[in-house]
Amino acid sequence: MELGGKLEVGRSRRVALYVTCLVDVMRPSVGFAAIKLLEDAGCEVVVPEHQTCCGQPAYNAGGEAEAKALAKQVVETFEPFDAVVAPSGSCAGMIRDHYPKLLAAEPEWRDRATGLASRTYELTSFLVDVMGMESVEADYQGAVCYHDSCAGLRELNIKQQPRKLLRSVRGVEVREMDDAEVCCGFGGLFCVKYADISNQMVSRKMDNIEASGADTLLAGDLGCLLNMAGKLTRQGSRVKVRHVAEVLAGMTDLPAIGEGEV
């Protein structure tokens, strides 16, 4: 993967955390886990106040004007930092892969977006590829399987990084499910607009998760996690669902996603 040119492996730097809308609202503990991991890696973490949504829902729904306005807001908010890190491959991919295309017609904004894109990372790939992190200090008892979310895998080449760190967690056994790279059927608004198809996709995913024998399902994107957790609880499965950052940071006291009284 092409990493931002001026970043040097291992050097401490001022990193802006892009919390993402879903983590902000649905699972704040992922944000705190990300802060812990980044600080452990030697970064100074800043949470810019002006952040909201990266514009991806509008972008994928054909709302180009709305997506552009939000993209510019993100560029302005995050430009001052050495690096931007998001606990989401999808949001990081939006900035890295799509902002420069989205703003291509406005040269000044395109250049600013391209600059930001080259300094934007998904959390686990930033820790491993940029900060050179080899392991984490954490405990978790269980057999976990990791679902490769589409944008992280195919836009950002995230595959080995989370697994590498997971293997260093004391008590964790990493299992591979079949078709870990196949989409879970979330797809943003797709899962509501094309509910029947989405359900079929997530059902196939469920079969693979259960067959892996893992007791915990992890991924790096909350959208996919909410989709799969919702399906698992609806089916009465005992598999727990967490964002990978929670396990890597050793912050798993909180109930798993969707886990509560029956």
Binding site: D24, F32, C191, A195, G230
Partner: peptide, 23 residues
């Protein structure tokens, strides 16, 4: 507004307070 979601799956509830509020 999310009948398509909940027809087939539960919607996991959020923790309660947002990240930014907690921070």
């Amino acid at each position: 507004l999310a009948g398509g979601w909940t027809r087939y799956r539960d919607f996991p509830a959020p923790e309660g307070e947002t990240f930014h509020a907690q921070l």
